[in-house]
Design a protein around this nucleic acid. Structure first.
Lengths: 168, 168
DNA sequence: AAGTCTTGGTTGAACTTTCAACTGGCTCCA
DNA sequence: TGGAGCCAGTTGAAAGTTCAACCAAGACTT
C-alpha cells in the first residue's frame, strides 16, 4: 500500500483534525465501498426475486439447509450456525415458517433438550419452485457479472475472512 | 458433485425431483456460501467493534458520508442513496441520531421540500474517536485477511455487480 | 446423589426496518 | 393560474430482529 493518509475510511478530515492511525489507501477505500454498496445491492436483488415466492434469503437458506440434510431435518442450534442467524432469531423465524407449513418442529429423542426443524412437503415444493429463479438470479447478478476467475478468487477471499481468528 | 448437477444451490435433490436449470458447479457453490457466511461474519465483527461507540455500521456510514461532504451536510434523499438505505429507514435513523445530537436537520433554502442532514460537532467527535478502531477492524478482518491482491480483485468484482443493469 | 456448570432452546419486551399511505412543494403545460 | 403529475420527506402500524432473562436437560465433580 502507499502511504497512510488521514481520512475516515474516506474523505479528508481537516488537517488539524488528523488522527494517528493507518488508514486505507484510496484504492482500498474504493474497493471497500464497492463491496459495501455491491453487497447491499446484491442482497436487495436476491430478496426481490425471492419475494415472489413469499420468502427472503434467510428463509431460503433455511429451506436449502434442511433439504440437504439427512431426513431433511436439522437441530435448531446447528441450523442457526449454518444459516448464520442467532438462536433467538431462528426460533422466531422457524415459528413463522411453521405457521406457513414450510417446516415442523419435533422433539429430538436422543437429547430431550433438542428440537428438530424438519422440512415439510410444502416446504420442499416451495424450494423446488423458487430454486431455479433464485439460482438464475445469483448467476446473473454475481457469478456471471464477476466472471468465473474472479468469482473463484472471491470464494477464497471470504474463506480467508472466515479463517481470521477472533476472540468471540 | 462436480459438474453442474441437480441441487438447490447446494445438496442433491432426489433424482426424480431434478429440475431443468443451470445450477452452480460445486466450486461455485462453495464460493457462494463462503461469501454468504463470510460477509455475515464480517459485518458482525464490524458491528461488534462499533457497538463500543454506540453506533452500528449504518450509522457510521452516515457519519462518514456527512463528514466528507461540503458543509458536512447532505440532503436526505442523496444520503439515502449514498448509504444504501431506504428513504423511510433513513428518516427513522436520522431521527434517532438527532436525539443523540450526532446530526441536526435543517430546512434547505433552495428547495423547500428538501431537508439537510448536518453533522454536529458531537457527531464529528464521535466519528473521530470511532474511526481508528473501525478502520483497524476493517484492515484486520478484511483487507489483510484477504491480501492486497485479492482485495483489489474484490473491489473490481463488486463494481461489476453494481454495473449489472437492472430493471429496478 | 446432590450441586454446579454448561448447553439447547424459548420468551417477551424493546428496538429497528419495512410498507403503504400521506403532506406539501416543485414543474410543466394548457 | 390552475390543474395533473412528480419528487422529497415523513408517518405510523406491522413485521422482523435483538437482548436479556429464563427453564429444562445433560454433564461433570465430589
Amino acid at each position: 500500500m502507499s502511504t497512510a493518509e488521514a481520512s475516515t475510511t474516506g474523505g479528508a478530515i481537516a488537517a488539524d483534525d488528523r488522527v494517528q492511525a493507518r488508514w486505507l489507501t484510496a484504492e482500498q477505500q474504493t474497493a471497500w465501498r464497492n463491496y459495501l454498496l455491491g453487497a447491499a445491492r446484491l442482497s436487495e436483488r436476491l430478496d426481490a426475486d425471492l419475494r415472489k415466492f413469499g420468502i427472503d434469503l434467510g428463509e431460503y437458506e433455511i429451506l436449502v439447509t434442511l433439504e440437504e440434510s439427512p431426513g431433511r431435518r436439522v437441530r435448531m442450534s446447528e441450523l442457526a450456525d449454518r444459516v448464520h442467524q442467532s438462536r433467538s432469531r431462528l426460533t422466531h423465524t422457524i415459528a413463522r415458517m411453521e405457521k406457513s407449513n414450510l417446516v415442523v418442529r419435533t422433539m429430538c429423542p436422543s437429547d430431550r433438550r433438542g428440537v428438530w426443524a424438519q422440512l415439510t412437503p410444502t416446504g420442499f415444493d416451495l424450494l423446488k419452485s423458487a430454486a431455479p429463479s433464485h439460482v438464475a438470479c445469483v448467476r446473473r447478478n454475481f457469478v456471471e457479472a464477476v466472471g468465473e476467475q474472479d468469482f473463484a478468487v472471491l470464494g477464497r477471499a471470504f474463506a480467508a475472512v472466515l479463517a481470521v481468528e477472533n476472540d468471540d
